[in-house]
Amino acid sequence: MAVEAFLDTNVLIYAAAGGDDESRRRAAFACIAAANFGTSGQVLAEFYTNVTRKPAVPLTADEALAWIERLSEFPVVPVTHDLVRTAVGLSIRHKVSSWDAAVIGAAEEIGAKTLFTEDLNDGQTYGSVRVVNPFKIH
């Protein structure tokens, strides 16, 4: 089930409902198009909640579910007791939130070397996973 990259919630939100920020939307689609990627049940749940409430033009429940169905064609790490336990350890070790630690843990579990997110430090490595902020202008 190894993949090249793990996509965090914010990448998926910008792809689905990027609004007026066309550069972020293009960057998000580039992550989706360029990589053999996976995600997690946690990310998909966060995606649904946020994409149906926060954007200037939110997705309908049906539109969000259609995105989730398409994304679920790629590997999805389930939220399990083991993942939660791993996240607790990563949270303590790296001094990040438990939510971010669960994303890191899921990325490691799925074998991703790259984690596309804007929520962690661009370029930082957590265990075997390197963070890349696809929206940062280099």
Rank of each mutant, 00 (worst) to 15 (best):
A33I: 03
I32V: 14
A5K: 00
E108P: 06
F37G: 00
L120N: 00
S98Y: 13
T39Q: 03
S40T: 06
G111P: 02
H94V: 00
P58V: 12
A112M: 03
L90M: 07
P75D: 04
N10M: 09
V51L: 15
R25W: 09
S97L: 07
H94Y: 14
T125Q: 09
S72T: 10
T9I: 12
R25T: 15
G38W: 03
Y48M: 13
S72C: 11
A35T: 10
I110M: 05
I68C: 12
A17W: 12
V79S: 10
A45E: 02
D122T: 00
L65E: 10
K54N: 06
T60R: 07
S98Q: 04
S98F: 15
S23P: 03
A34P: 01
V129Q: 01
S98T: 15
R53C: 08
F29K: 00
R70I: 13
L12T: 07
R93A: 09
E46Q: 08
N121I: 05
A16I: 12
P55L: 11
G89L: 11
I92A: 13
I110P: 02
Y48V: 15
S97T: 15
S97M: 08
A66N: 11
K95R: 15
I32E: 06
N50A: 12
F116Y: 15
F37I: 04
A61L: 09
P75M: 08
G123A: 00
A27L: 09
A101V: 07
S128T: 13
Q124R: 05
Y14A: 06
A34M: 06
L90D: 02
R26H: 08
V11K: 02
V129E: 02
K113S: 10
I104K: 02
A30D: 14
D119E: 06
S72V: 05
D119A: 07
V43Q: 02
I68V: 15
L120E: 02
M1F: 03
A17G: 12
A64Q: 11
T39F: 10
I104E: 00
I92T: 12
I68Q: 11
L7S: 04
F37H: 01
V76N: 06
V96E: 01
D119Q: 05
G111T: 00
R24D: 04
P58E: 11
Y48W: 14
D100W: 08
G19Q: 13
A107I: 03
R26G: 05
D119P: 04
A56G: 14
A56P: 04
Y48E: 09
S40R: 07
V79N: 05
L44R: 09
R85M: 13
A101C: 08
A2C: 00
C31K: 05
V76A: 05
D82M: 05
A15Y: 11
L59I: 07
R70L: 14
R26L: 10
D100H: 07
A33F: 10
T9E: 08
R24L: 05
R26N: 08
A28E: 02
D100N: 14
R70E: 13
F37V: 01
N50S: 11
T39N: 06
A56H: 14
E118G: 02
A56T: 15
I68T: 13
